[in-house]
């Protein structure tokens, strides 16, 4: 059986659980409330998932880099970009021209600091990125004085408006981004090096790869994607508040894992994360449709996640 595992087969096998879950949930949703699968509703859910997908792209890069790579600072970076980004534009579309690149670069730099601490000092990624999250949150508070941002460029606000049929502009952008990043990950020299580093950092080093540089860049990409997602979020929601994206940290980890990228690194891709994000928001919206209170919804989400994990994240047995 083992002999038959082809790399491509494996990718399909990783996607399969999330695709099955999506189909099942759409069916269940439609039974519970007819009209659940209407194009408008589904595209709305996809649009919500699109914001998360952007974060998931970065999170996937970090998780593929191995060595229990995880980025717990993405939520804070997102919130920071969502709050500070638009306010830098003074509400003018033209302002995006500099504020977006500036925040992407700043995000990248924050990620590079994460990566340097992790690779150079051999610190656990979890703790470094947690602390970095607190630092970034602190910066956000410092610069905004805790006030929500008011002036948001119209261009950002248009992201959430139906564009191509029922499809939102944001979704189209994210789909393009998703495929570009998947292509970058699977085909570019950097992407292939990243897979090797994640698979086995030790062998990668012995093979002469610049492991530190490669891994540090993956953290940079993650933080940069988070900054981008911050802009998308503020556009979709229409306003920005302090800590508005906190939950995206763990949501992104969960989506990527549901999408078949393992925490142990070395395999996976960014498309799985998009599927995972869709699963999570589909679940949320079914539970919301049911009229469950927030608490029950969150609880059930946890329970469902636990069941999904049982299917795809078990560690090997001690007895061989």
């Amino acid at each position: 059986m083992l002999r038959k595992i082809n790399k491509n087969n494996e990718i399909i096998r990783n996607f399969l659980p999330s695709i099955i879950i999506i189909v099942l949930m759409l069916l269940v949703g439609n039974i519970l409330t007819p009209g659940f699968t209407s194009a408008n509703n589904v595209f709305n859910i996809i649009c919500k998932a699109s914001v998360l997908t952007i974060v998931c792209i970065g999170q996937a890069f970090v998780m593929i880099s191995g060595n229990s790579g995880i980025d717990m600072s993405v939520g804070s970076i997102m919130s920071c970009a969502a709050l500070l980004g638009p306010s830098m534009t003074q509400g003018q579309n033209i302002g995006l021209l500099w504020s977006l690149p500036i925040f992407l670069i700043l995000g990248f730099l924050v990620g590079v600091i994460n990566g340097l601490c992790i690779q150079k000092f051999r610190l656990p990624a979890l703790v470094v990125t947690l602390c970095m999250g607190i630092v970034v949150d602190g910066l956000t508070i410092g610069f905004t004085h805790g006030k929500p941002s008011l002036k948001i460029p119209d261009l950002l606000l248009e992201l959430g408006i139906p564009y191509l049929g029922r499809m939102r502009l944001l979704t189209i952008i994210v789909i393009v981004l998703l495929f570009l990043m998947e292509l970058f990950l699977q085909k570019s020299k950097y992407g292939r090096q990243l897979f090797l580093c994640g698979s086995n950092q030790n062998v990668a080093r012995l093979s002469g790869l610049r492991v530190n540089v490669i891994v540090v860049i993956s953290y940079g990409i993650s933080a940069m994607m988070a900054a981008l997602a911050g802009f998308a979020l503020v556009g979709y929601v229409g306003s920005a508040q302090l800590f508005m994206a906190d939950e995206y940290t763990m949501l992104s980890v969960a989506s990527v894992v549901i999408g078949g990228t393992s925490l142990s690194g070395g395999k996976g891709g960014v498309i799985g994360g998009a599927l995972g994000a869709f699963v999570l928001f589909l679940l949320t919206s079914i539970l919301t449709v049911l009229g469950l209170p927030d608490g029950a919804r969150i609880g059930i989400e946890g329970l469902v996640l636990l069941l999904i994990l049982m299917a795809n994240s078990r560690e090997s047995k001690l007895r061989i």
Binding site: K7, R192, F195, L196, G198, S199, N200, N202, V203, A204, L206, G265, G266, K267
Partner: peptide, 13 residues
């Protein structure tokens, strides 16, 4: 295991 293969990757890679 430790110094040879990239376990998660293909033969060609």
């Amino acid at each position: 295991e430790v110094e040879g293969t990239f376990k998660e990757r293909s033969i060609a890679e």
